[in-house]
Nucleic acid binder design. Sequence first.
DNA 1: GCATGTTTTGCAATATTGTGCAGTTTTATT
DNA 2: AATAAAACTGCACAATATTGCAAAACATGC
Lengths: 249, 249
Amino acid sequence: MLKEERHQFILNEVRVHNRVLLTDIADLLHVSVDTVRRDIKELHQSEKLKKVHGGAVSLGFNNYNPTGKKIYSQEKKAQIAEKGLGLIKEGQVVLLSGGTTNLELARRIPSKIKLTCFTPSLPIAVQLLTKSNVEVIFIGGRMSKDSQIAVGGSAINMLSEIKVDICFLGTNSIHPTEGLTEFDWEIVQMKKAMIHSSRKIVSPSISEKIGSLQRYKICAVEEIDFLITELEPWDAKLDAFRNMNIQLL
Amino acid sequence: MLKEERHQFILNEVRVHNRVLLTDIADLLHVSVDTVRRDIKELHQSEKLKKVHGGAVSLGFNNYNPTGKKIYSQEKKAQIAEKGLGLIKEGQVVLLSGGTTNLELARRIPSKIKLTCFTPSLPIAVQLLTKSNVEVIFIGGRMSKDSQIAVGGSAINMLSEIKVDICFLGTNSIHPTEGLTEFDWEIVQMKKAMIHSSRKIVSPSISEKIGSLQRYKICAVEEIDFLITELEPWDAKLDAFRNMNIQLL
DNA sequence: GCATGTTTTGCAATATTGTGCAGTTTTATT
DNA sequence: AATAAAACTGCACAATATTGCAAAACATGC
């Protein structure tokens, strides 16, 4: 058995099944796993497949890339995300709503840190799946086309069955007296359910959203534990939130 | 024995067997391995074959370039997807498992057609959300990192609550007597649940997967209603499935 | 025929590569 | 944190490659 033959065999298996196990190949070809390991290592280096723990996967299989829509105020959102990361502790259970700020947060989660993340947001789930130490649990249900998050009874029901340590609640509008508001009724229901399922609520929000108001109310400002903006905590724009038992970051 | 004769002989062996061993040729031609080695070296330099450690392989043997790779199964999967589309009727409720063939199918669903689609697969959900007339319902749960589909009790539970018209069950391996098999136990559970939730089961499968076998069994071939391959329905490779109450497409 | 130079072939010494094994470290999972 | 599976490391042995060399075969011109 020539090395070349084995390589071709392995590549074919990967093509057909998308994924192969080292031990299976070794068995089929009657060679040691070490040899197969070395083969796969070579094929990985020549970028014919992707080596993973225990075997190999096809290249095109997992590289789903969310179409890079340009994100509004990415710079500010990145700052917010960095601050938000400071609130996450190893081993915690986290709930992430949708929104581009949370997406930015998800992207920046270090792959070392061990977390359990719940989310009803498709883009965020995709992002989280790239983190090897994050267990991802998708809150399923009817998908809302424009926001790409699950909504409706089934999703709310699933939320009612969990209690997480911390929830990052992306929001459209936050107002000192009127609280958090949203224009989509179904998303409001989801966010209400998320609040009920969480011990601590974090609201990451770019400063432009402060003071704005939408049709439906999610909750009062007092229900929020942390408000994160791209501003310094002592900025005058945040004065209205100062004596409210909210931690500003 | 002239050198030229040997060259022709070697080239012929390579053509027929795709590969040759140095020692075999030396044996057959009653010359020393050194001579054969030199012959192969020359043929390698004139690009008539490819010299490898221990022998030689045909040139076309190793045509697994990144560009060709994409085309390789893509085309077959596209054919399968097209056939599969014929089974979907306006207004139906469809269940789609994961896999690249189903992804291809999802991509080709016309945006005119009105459907309700259930799926536990992240990439497929993303694809379906671009179709304006398709209502997407995500089967949530713990996400499996490499296959990007939801697995586990919660997902299976959600599946148990639905009954759809037709299920496209992507599969890794299909065998005439052993049935559909899979290497990941959790995915097997998901697929079993999907079968229970569907009136009709369609198995889209490229022909290379036929006859292959994995560790865990999903179901017998008889439980499938339609088997779609890129081959013509009367192709000899499908004979094994012919008197089994399965419709071949 | 014979000397000369070239090509081919086999051989031997040495170098390189491929393979499997055993022990240790890393990784994934519970 | 414990555990088992998998990855890595170094090593030994065998298979193969390379190199240099010499004998044989062959061609060519004299």
